[in-house]
Write a protein that binds this DNA or RNA. Structure first.
Length: 385
DNA sequence: TGATCCCGCCACAGT
DNA sequence: ACTGTGGCGGGATCA
């Protein structure tokens, strides 16, 4: 139905901008918002941040604050304290957070390598297998759907799935991409591919890339990231800068302006002002349609293959960088350990990771020799099959 | 035209 | 029922 006209006359709107309704995307970018956010809260005496406070001070809707807060939290700058409230940790918390990410990744890699745990199942729905509703002519599936157990599992599924797709986790996995490999310049397409594992329809890719833009923008405003081009091609890409002790982000001077002359950013409290015109009702329609589809595809997915839709681990070794050994290859692997290690190690240019890997390696070796001494298994390690 | 990415609907979670 | 969160992708802007 007809909503209010999209251009409701709004209070306190800068004449200049309202006259020639020049819409500037940049003025409202997430990166800029983040800069202002940091300028606002990265100072002494701040320990608690209220979302409403931030939203109103920055002149944006809450939704945008969530975006920022989620990525800030994923690098340790913030911590959720309670509903609507975050605790400010500051930039000094970044190194530890990054280190933890490195460790996580090293651990994952270790497991993938030695335990062959890449059971990864991507979170996409590229399975075109009958896009129509599943043929379940047997009514028994329907009854089972109403069972408490089903609902419980369904809930778990949702929770897990949601977490898997959260901006925060995506941020961490994105960062791992940089922190754990040497070519510290990655295009977002590339990143999306790595994070997605393998094979995905363009729709999933597009969505992922959109999110990566969001993330990259706030990381850039923190000076953890920088936009450049890939060395070879002219493709735009991002370069990891890492944390350089100094609070490198520019303490935006316009914050002062914002403070004094109200709303440099946003210009409105209710975001109803000079926005991109859009047919409201159509948007709603689209929604309905979209969600109807999504829902059916979910049901289908869940029914068809119970655990489908999960993505184990941050990202799969889609690039084939990791030597994979199957579990039944025990004996062979045992003899190759040293070689494998030296083969593998070079892919870690990063000293921290080298050390970590060495650490795991030592642990594993001592464990292994212990086991093999008690249980001499020359070439017959696989006989128990 | 392809790269960017703002915007806000609405599903799901929490009270 | 009502509020807090935040996934998601259409389509406007930018280069």
């Amino acid at each position: 139905m007809s909503d209010l006209p999209p251009e409701t006359p709004k209070l306190g709107l800068p004449l200049t901008s309202s006259l020639h309704h020049s819409y500037s995307q940049k003025q409202k970018s997430l990166g800029l918002l983040c800069t202002n956010f940091l300028a606002l809260y990265n100072r002494d005496g701040i320990e608690t941040i209220g979302l409403d406070d931030a939203a109103s001070k920055l002149g944006v809707e809450r939704r945008r604050i969530y975006d920022i807060v989620n990525v800030l939290e994923s690098v340790g700058v913030l911590t959720k304290r309670a509903k609507n409230q975050y605790t400010w940790k500051g930039f000094s918390a970044i190194p530890a957070a990054l280190k933890e990410l490195q460790e996580e990744e090293a651990k994952d890699t270790f497991h993938r390598f030695y335990l062959n745990e890449n059971v990864k199942v991507s979170d996409d729905e590229d399975d075109e297998e009958e896009s129509s509703s599943q043929p379940h002519s047997s009514s028994q599936t329907d009854t089972s759907k109403s069972s408490p157990i089903f609902r419980f599992l369904q809930n778990r599924y949702f929770l897990y799935n949601r977490r898997e797709k959260s901006l925060g986790l995506l941020t961490q996995n994105f960062i791992k991409l940089f922190v754990c490999s040497e070519p510290r310049i990655i295009s977002l397409d590339e990143a999306a591919k790595l994070l997605l594992g393998d094979a995905h329809n363009t729709s999933i890719m597009r969505t992922k890339v959109r999110r990566l833009y969001d993330i990259a923008n706030v990381l850039s405003s923190m000076n953890l990231l920088e936009k450049t081009h890939t060395l070879d091609s002219r493709k735009p890409a991002f370069k990891w800068l890492g944390y350089n002790c100094e609070p490198t982000f520019t303490l935006s001077s316009d914050l002062m302006q914002a403070e004094s002359k109200k709303r440099v950013f946003g210009t409105d409290l209710t975001n109803v002002s000079v926005k991109r015109t859009k047919t409201h009702e159509h948007a709603t329609e689209r929604r309905m349609k979209k969600h109807a589809v999504a829902e059916s595809s979910y049901n289908q997915t869940f029914d068809a293959h119970g655990s489908r839709g999960y993505e184990f681990g941050p990202f799969s070794p889609a690039t084939g960088t990791y030597p994979t050994a199957s579990l039944e290859d025990n004996s062979k692997r045992a003899f190759d350990v040293e070689n494998l290690v030296s083969d593998y190690r070079p892919s870690y240019q990063n000293q921290v990771l080298k050390d970590l890997f060495a650490h795991y390696m030592d642990a594993w070796k001592s464990w292994y020799s212990e086991v093999t001494q008690k249980n001499p298994l020359p070439n017959t390690s696989q006989q128990h099959h």
